[in-house]
């Protein structure tokens, strides 16, 4: 598996587009946190909420990144060589998912750590410090885990759709249309276990209300979606000729 992960790392680092996406994600997190603190300088705004503001955008971006990590292989025709070098597609998809989780976790950690450093400096200049409490710790933990799972989930979706436009459309439709419809017209309970509701429930400070009151249960639900879709993707890839 370490050999496969090294292969994924070379694939990842040797083109520019994933770096651009990650740079944008990091920039957005940092910018929103600073903005939150600067705008609300008098009160010293809750940094957990500032973080939560960026979560929708970051999760969408990391999902798109995940879809791209596999769809680009189909687009540019490297997928055949990838499968001849690793004929066991379950191992290949597993390696991609593990790598994806690592990319998401590391990006989110860098973004959050970076933004806290910058935010502390900004806050200090206004004469106050950033309050670190349990809720902030939970928010950061949930945020980082949700970020990792998002990339993996994107990879799972990409393994099913093979096409990035299709994969991204599916993700956005589900996120912004389908899940709201289910929550409104079916039941709140059912809605809360859908992937993106679970993703946002993973981050305690997000405003989206969810039936999943414990953030780490939501993390598990979100991860279960990624694993489930990856299993479906593996079965499909196994059956379909590339």
């Amino acid at each position: 598996m370490s050999a496969l992960l090294r292969g994924e790392w070379i694939k990842f680092r040797s083109v520019r587009s994933p770096w651009v996406m990650i740079a944008v994600a990091v920039a957005v997190v940092v910018a929103l946190l600073i903005a939150g603190i600067a705008v609300d300088s008098s009160k010293g705004r809750d940094p957990a909420e500032s973080l939560a503001v960026s979560s929708t955008f970051v999760i969408v971006l990391l999902l798109v990144l995940g879809v791209q990590l596999i769809a680009q292989e189909y687009r540019f025709g490297t997928i055949r060589a990838t499968f001849t070098s690793v004929p066991d597609c379950s191992r290949l998809i597993l390696a991609k998912m593990i790598f994806g989780v690592a990319v998401g976790l590391v990006s989110a950690l860098i973004a959050i750590a970076g933004s806290f450093v910058v935010a502390s400096i900004v806050a200090n200049s206004y004469g106050h410090s950033i309050p670190i409490d349990a809720r902030l710790v939970e928010t950061v933990s949930g945020y980082v885990l949700a970020a990792g799972i998002s990339v993996a989930l994107g990879i799972a979706v990409g393994s099913i759709t093979r096409n990035s436009a299709l994969g991204i459309t599916a993700v956005l439709l589900d996120m912004f249309v389908l899940e709201s419809l289910v929550t409104v017209f079916a039941s709140e309970g059912l809605g809360s276990v859908l992937p993106f509701r679970a993703a946002f429930a993973s981050i305690p400070a997000t405003s989206i209300r969810s039936g999943l009151s414990l953030w780490f249960v939501a993390v598990l639900v979100y991860a279960a979606w990624a694993v489930g879709l990856a299993v479906i993707g593996t079965v499909i890839v196994e059956r379909r000729d590339p």
């Binding site: 050999a3 496969l4 090294r6 292969g7 994924e8 790392w9 070379i10 694939k11 040797s14 083109v15 520019r16 587009s17 680009q72 540019f76 025709g77 490297t78 055949r80 060589a81 990838t82 001849t84 070098s85 690793v86």
Partner: peptide, 24 residues
């Protein structure tokens, strides 16, 4: 194989290196 592709922005060396890695 026919219709074998390369990511247009990836260098020839990296293209080969990523496959070399997976097969040790």
């Amino acid at each position: 194989l026919d219709a074998e592709g390369v990511h247009p922005r990836r260098s020839a060396r990296n293209h080969l290196a990523m496959f070399a890695a997976t097969n040790r």
